[in-house]
Design a protein around this nucleic acid. Structure first.
Length: 976
RNA sequence: GCCCGGGUGGUGGAAUUGGUAGACACGCAGGACUUAAAAUCCUGUGGAUAGUAAUAUCUGUACGGGUUCAACUCCCGUCCCGGGUACCA
């Protein structure tokens, strides 16, 4: 008896998984005539919790696409690996004393087992693990290439440091000023360069390197004695313990990603990412176009440079504001204002990150006593300092235009500064108006000009007068690349005389030294600083105690898959050229800024240095939505009671409906009384407030919303003596479990162990099989949408697979296909399905392709069709979705080879043409008639009937028009 | 606040991009098989009105207006929801 039952599914799935492994059917070769297709998942961090049903969503989608492309004749690279360095393993080691390498390896094994159960077609021979020295050898190597590079702004690309030295030796740095010099420009000549010491030269080069050391802020937590990552700091306090966190300067590695801001921005236009994803990256890069304007001060020889995007408002400047940290503050403050300024500086210093974040609306500032001169009308403008101007952006100084900028307006109102109106009626005196459409007033030579035109006029004029120039600024900061952690890639550098030098290529990898001490060293350095012998490995030579962030290994792993076992290069040039860009990259949108930007950056640098010939890593990005959990709650009544016997009081749980009704209901009170009376006579009082906060209950002991009370009692020892107040059909309280149910509360939230709402895919696979899981996850809704996990519709998908199976088996369970020739109708069903499914897969619209298969199965069932010529192509088309089932059917159909060697059937339009067709005749928007014609009706007949000469004109090669729209008197449209 | 994305039955969601809205699935209701239940199969299912019935008519894609022979789809305004970001000049 072969029925599509639990046992049969299990047998089939195990059989094929084994066959795939034994025959290495998914192993991919780099040498083939076939066109390539690279389908990639974002590799996971192997967490201890294992996979939940949300993880495979994207993997299933990419697997379907990869399998589809294979049977379309492509050589498909579809690998998997692990982002295996990272904080949680280190934290786990601190708490449980298990080495990160050990727990990581365990977790990876568990992940691989779970992934294996779902039937993915990964080429595991290409697996990468970022914590493997054979892998991170090349992470370190690429880091050194970046270290050995600088960004030539003239050519807009990275070049070797040796090129830069050559330039310095010939012309100094006059043509290549130091990048990002905010407050200082250090120019030197060739002669100067040659006179510098080795250390001085290295320090200058460091200002140019794309990977550089500099003093940057870290989140320092004194109480924990450690540095925290940004996501470990929440609202200015530590994630663990809630201790205060302050900014501290440490000498750390950074990547000069800001040099690539423009290219990262432009690159977005060429790649197929969702609009929202591009928007997030654009916002992050934060380009703004404007101008630098120099203002002379009334004090001789001082000038103030501001950055503005609105030079057109230059006559509306009523004050200047500079950041408290600005160099000029100390130099220009007048003696009369000195006290006030110092008081303010102290105040700013005392403000923690938390204060700043909490009180962004608070307006503060102080007047320096100095004045700047408006270059166009000579007006003297007071210079203030305020913390709302950030030292790190632009020049750390702004010109205040209160009528056009909200913050400036509030500042002016607060300090009672005069407000010049340059936009006439657009300004109402109450709030600023940032319009660009106003006609300028009070603006000298700009009067009568529309603002957006004036922007360019002023910028040009500034340039002519030599007191300003056009300028582009970016919000994006350089990427901090040091982590004070153990479980990461060590920096492959050696410090001599305080400056880092690259480790020799032959000495890579610089392996992570063995250690069982993962505590931070306490002085702000990471655990590696505890290994003093390793750090100070030779006289006058030191290593770096920091490690790289997890982004490092992830920034290039997609290249390693192309040639994962290469010992001579991160990948062979031929392999890199062949596989080229990732055709489709599938992953979560949470990586929008960090991972995707760093990957793009590393790709661009490697491209500039000539290692690869593409400069965007991912041609197309698909963001699968999150699958959220559906939590259940129980409501515990808290009460106090004085009973005349000394019993352990029970815990009483109240059904949701009773809670909602208002718990003061007499029935509830009575019920509690009855429960307690079993424990003896006495008085009690109830605290209903606690009912508002439900307790998470494990979703596996809840059926829909109804709690399985016996399972609940067994769930935790605490609940052993639980008592329940049920609700009956009318929503009234009852203690009798036969008359009522315990109804739980529910909420949609993140899937998490601590919410007890995690659904493990292993369970679904045991109940329904991997094919049903795969199809159901796709059927759940559009891939990119977030949706809660529920199993409401899983039976529908399971029924479909069973129906398909039954189609090919007779009532005794014998496999049966007929060799009879299919009818036209059957062919139509087949080709319609093929066409739709193919189009849907190309568009990643898997939910509709699953629907299409269901429609197809319904139609074939009602036609009772089990003909080979129909079934075979369908089995192939279905194989990306349900690989186990289709492999089995494929072999039953008599094919010794795996279905991978079949090719996706071509649909033929000829079968899609209707055997008859109808004209909906719509008049004034209403369909007034349907006119049916058989295909063989002659044109003349049609002409006579509808008098539609246009239809006949468009009638070509026997194809009837699909639809004709008619309004009284004429034909509006003929849809062919 | 600003910038994106979205709002369609009881539910998840379709709709060839302007052409008969609600495919497919869940749920629900009715029926068949069964001693019974489960499973399976069949039928119905946006709302309203009329009719014994097949059916017919009206209404309907967050709300208000517009363009069009024709609008879920395009335009203007309003309201909600989701995501990103936040003194970025």
């Amino acid at each position: 008896m072969a029925e599509y039952t639990k046992d049969e599914i299990k047998r089939i799935e195990e059989k094929w998984r084994k066959t795939w492994i034994d025959k290495e059917v998914y192993k991919v070769s780099n040498n083939t005539e076939k066109p390539k297709c690279y389908v990639l998942d974002m590799f996971p961090y192997p967490s201890g919790a294992g996979l939940h049903v949300g993880h495979p969503l994207g993997y299933i989608a990419s697997d379907i696409y990869a399998r589809f492309k294979r049977i379309k004749g492509f050589n498909v690279l579809h690998p998997m690996g692990f982002d295996a360095f990272g904080l949680p393993a280190e934290q786990y080691a601190l708490e449980h004393g298990i080495h990160p390498a050990v727990s990581t390896a365990d977790n990876i094994n568990n992940f691989k087992r779970q992934l294996g159960n779902i039937g993915f077609s990964y080429d595991w021979s290409r697996e990468v693990q970022t914590c493997d020295p054979k892998y991170y050898r090349w992470t370190q190597w690429i880091f050194l290439q970046i270290f050995d590079s600088w960004f030539n702004r003239k050519k807009e690309k990275a070049e070797r440091i040796s090129e830069l030295i050559k330039i310095f030796e010939v012309e100094g740095n006059v043509n290549h000023s130091i990048p990002n010099s905010k407050f200082r420009t250090q120019l030197f000549t060739a002669a100067d360069w040659k006179s510098y010491s080795e250390k001085e030269q290295q320090e200058i080069l460091m200002e140019y390197r794309l990977a550089y050391l500099a003093y940057t802020d870290v989140n320092w937590c004194e109480a924990l004695g450690t540095v925290l990552a940004n996501d470990e700091v929440i609202n200015g306090v530590s994630y663990r313990g809630g201790f205060p966190v302050v900014k501290k300067q440490m000498r750390q590695w950074s990547l000069r990603i800001t040099e690539y801001a423009e290219r990262l921005l432009k690159g977005l236009d060429e790649i197929d990412f969702s609009e929202s994803m591009k928007e997030i990256q654009r916002n992050w890069i934060g380009k703004s176009v404007g101008a630098l304007v120099n203002f002379q001060l009334t004090i001789d020889n001082f000038q103030l440079t501001v950055f503005t995007t609105r030079p057109d408002t230059i006559f509306g400047v009523d004050f200047m504001v500079i950041a408290p940290e600005h160099d000029l503050v100390k130099k220009i403050t007048t003696p009369e204002q000195k006290d006030e300024i110092e008081k303010y500086l102290k105040y700013v210093e005392s403000r923690s990150e938390i204060d700043r974040m909490a009180e962004v609306k608070k307006i503060t500032g102080a007047f320096t006593g100095a004045y700047a001169i408006n270059p166009f009308n000579g007006r003297e403008i007071p210079i203030w300092i305020s913390e709302y101007v950030l030292a790190g952006y632009g020049t750390g100084a702004i010109m205040g235009v209160p009528c056009g900028d909200e913050r400036d307006h509030k500042f002016a109102k607060h300090f009672k500064l005069p407000i010049t109106n340059i936009i006439g009626s657009h300004y109402n005196g109450e709030e600023a108006n940032p319009t660009k459409d106003a006609i300028l007033e009070n603006s000298d030579f700009l009067n009568g000009m529309v603002m957006h035109k004036a922007i360019d006029v002023v910028a040009t004029k500034l340039q002519e007068m030599g007191i300003g120039k056009r300028q582009v600024n970016y919000k994006m900061r350089d990427a901090g690349w040091s982590r004070q952690r153990y479980w990461g890639e060590p920096f492959p550098v050696i410090f001599k005389d305080g400056m880092p030098y690259a480790v020799k290529e032959s000495e890579l990898p610089l392996e992570l030294p063995p250690s069982d001490n993962f505590k931070p060293s306490g002085n702000g350095e990471g655990p590696l600083a505890n290994l003093t012998d390793w750090i100070n490995f030779a006289p006058d030579q030191k290593r770096d105690s920091n490690t790289m962030p997890t982004h490092a290994g992830a920034a290039w792993y997609f290249l390693r898959y192309m040639d994962p076992h290469n010992d001579h290069a991160f990948a062979d040039k031929k392999a890199l050229d062949y596989w080229n860009q990732v055709d489709v990259y599938v992953g979560g949108s949470e990586h929008a800024v960090a991972h995707l930007l760093y990957s793009r950056l590393w790709t661009k640098v490697l491209h500039d240095l000539g290692y690869i010939n593409f400069d965007e890593p991912f041609k197309k990005l698909i963001n699968q939505g999150k699958i959220t959990g559906d939590s259940r709650f129980v409501y515990r009544l808290s009460f106090s009671a004085t009973l005349n016997k000394d019993f352990k009081l029970p815990q009483i749980f109240v059904s949701k409906g009773i809670c909602d009704k208002g718990s003061n209901e007499e029935g509830t009170f009575e019920s509690v009384g009855k429960i307690l009376s079993r424990f003896g006579e006495g008085a009690f009082s109830i605290d209903y407030k606690s009912l508002e906060n439900g307790l998470h209950v494990d979703i596996s002991i809840v059926n829909g919303l109804e709690l399985n009370t016996d399972a609940f009692k067994a769930w935790k020892p605490d609940f052993e003596n639980a008592e329940f107040i049920f609700e009956d059909e009318n929503g009234n309280p009852t203690l009798d479990p036969t008359k009522g149910k315990y109804i739980c509360g529910s909420a949609i939230e993140k899937m998490s162990k601590s919410y007890f709402n995690v659904v493990n895919p292993d369970q679904i696979i045991t109940d329904y099989g991997a094919d049903t899981l795969r199809m159901y996850e796709m059927f759940l809704g559009p891939l990119e949408a977030s949706k809660p996990w529920n199993t409401n519709g899983i039976d529908g998908v399971y029924k479909f697979l069973r129906r398909f199976w039954n189609l090919l088996h007779d009532s005794t369970g014998k496999f049966k296909v007929s060799d009879a020739e299919p009818t036209r109708e059957e062919l139509k069903v087949l080709h319609k399905t093929l066409k739709k499914v193919e189009q849907d897969i190309e568009n990643f619209s898997f939910n509709t392709s699953v629907s299409e298969f269901m429609i197809c199965a319904n139609e074939l069932s009602s036609l009772k069709c089990n003909k080979r010529k129909i079934i075979e192509p369908l089995v192939i088309a279905l194989s990306p979705f349900a690989p186990h089932l289709t492999e089995e059917l494929w072999s039953l159909l008599g094919h010794p080879d795996t279905i991978l060697n079949a090719s996706f059937p071509k649909f033929e339009e000829q079968y899609l043409i209707e055997s008859s067709f109808s004209y909906p005749i719509s008049i004034n928007g209403k369909v007034r008639a349907q006119m049916e014609f058989a295909l063989d009706v002659p044109k003349e007949e049609i002409e006579k009937t509808v008098l539609a000469s246009e239809i006949v004109q468009k009638w070509t090669e026997g194809k009837p028009p699909k639809k004709v729209i008619v309004v009284p008197g004429k034909i509006v449209n003929v849809v062919m």
